[in-house]
């Protein structure tokens, strides 16, 4: 088992390296010059050359790649082109906000979708199941920016219950935090719930046809008990995996939610950096998201190994 997990860890590190390379290659592909765009119209050739040298842009691509990679390993993500601050510092102020948003949303979305998924798998084709399925389809077919927009319209513009902008940095009380976070978290969870509830239902439903579930029922256990105590432990791996994939959707959703609620998070920063062509900042943001996501997938993998006695005893 330890060997299996170690293998996953090594593979995870290799994957992260591959991702970093991809990010570097893709983001640096556009011809044109970050130094030129930074200096704008009134750049003289001399200042341009000086800045290029300072930014290391006069080096060949390959050298720049290694310098960049080496910097990351030492926690040095470079200097933001937009405001000249170290990227690591800029990110440090924003990352906690995004983590809080994503974390709170996962905290809402995961239990709700599990309960919905299990409940509809218990009584397939019942009114409840059909309703859940229909709502899930609508939720997962709706772009998250639309969901967020509708939430703003209904819960903020029309009713005025919650603020339309979530300036979380200016909040100091728990109540204030609730005020500010409710809308973004709701909007974000909703799109994830649709996807995850559907997957949970499908995975569980398939498992409910297994003979051992029938055995449990014939021993006298209720359907719910058979589902939760017998079927669920068997699909822990697939469900955790599906959840990890749903979190992919969640991260994508964070982008829009942060933009719409003007939430001071990392994805907002990244979108801005894309618009400003602030490469170092954007590369760092992308890398953090990918790393975060890969870690989630890794955790899902390890949970899958731990919950399977065949792999555990191997």
């Amino acid at each position: 088992m330890i060997r299996l997990i170690l293998k996953r860890l090594v593979l995870g590190v290799l994957t992260l390296w591959l991702v970093a390379t991809l990010v570097f290659l893709v983001s640096g592909a556009l011809p044109g010059d970050a130094a030129a765009s930074l200096l704008g119209q009134d750049a003289t050739p001399a200042t341009l050359a000086a800045l290029r040298a300072q930014m290391g842009l006069d080096q060949p691509e390959f050298i720049r790649y290694w310098t960049w990679l080496g910097g990351i390993l030492h926690g040095n993500f470079g200097i933001s082109l937009a405001n000249g601050q170290p990227v690591a510092q800029v990110i440090a102020t924003r990352l906690p906000n995004s983590l809080m948003l994503a974390g709170l949303s996962a905290l809402v979305a995961i239990p709700v979708s599990l309960v919905l998924g299990i409940a509809s798998a218990m009584k397939p084709n019942s009114v409840f199941d059909r309703l859940t399925t229909l709502l899930s389809i609508i939720a997962l077919s709706t772009p998250s920016f639309l969901i967020a927009t509708l939430f703003v319209l209904v819960l903020s513009v029309w009713t005025g219950w919650f603020p339309a902008l979530s300036s979380v940095d200016r909040v100091h009380s728990l109540g204030g935090l609730f005020q500010v976070m409710t809308l973004p978290v709701l909007a974000l969870s909703l799109s994830v719930i649709g996807q995850m509830a559907r997957m949970t239902r499908a995975i569980l439903l398939q498992q409910m046809n297994e003979p051992y579930v029938e055995t449990a029922v014939l021993k006298g256990s209720s359907g719910l008990r058979a589902a939760v105590l017998h079927a669920l432990p068997n699909v822990a791996g697939p469900i955790v995996n599906a959840s990890a994939l749903s979190l992919n959707a969640l991260i994508s959703g964070v982008v829009f939610v942060e933009v719409i609620f003007a939430y001071p998070g990392l994805t907002k920063l990244m979108v801005d950096s894309v618009s400003n062509r602030d490469l170092p900042l954007m590369q760092a943001c992308a890398l953090i998201f990918c790393a975060g996501f890969l870690i989630l997938v890794l955790i899902a993998d390890i949970i899958a190994i731990l919950t399977n006695p065949k792999l555990r005893t191997a």
Binding site: E210, P211, Y212, E214, T215, A216, V217, L218, K219, G220, S221, S222, H230, P233, N234, T307, N308, P309, K310
Partner: peptide, 24 residues
């Protein structure tokens, strides 16, 4: 029915390999 099944009447399935829960 729940009280009846497994207590007063019990079942031995064709393939015990499938009828036992693999993770318990």
């Amino acid at each position: 029915l729940r009280g009846f099944r497994g207590k007063d009447i019990a079942y031995v399935a064709q393939s015990a390999a499938a009828a036992f829960n693999p993770v318990k």
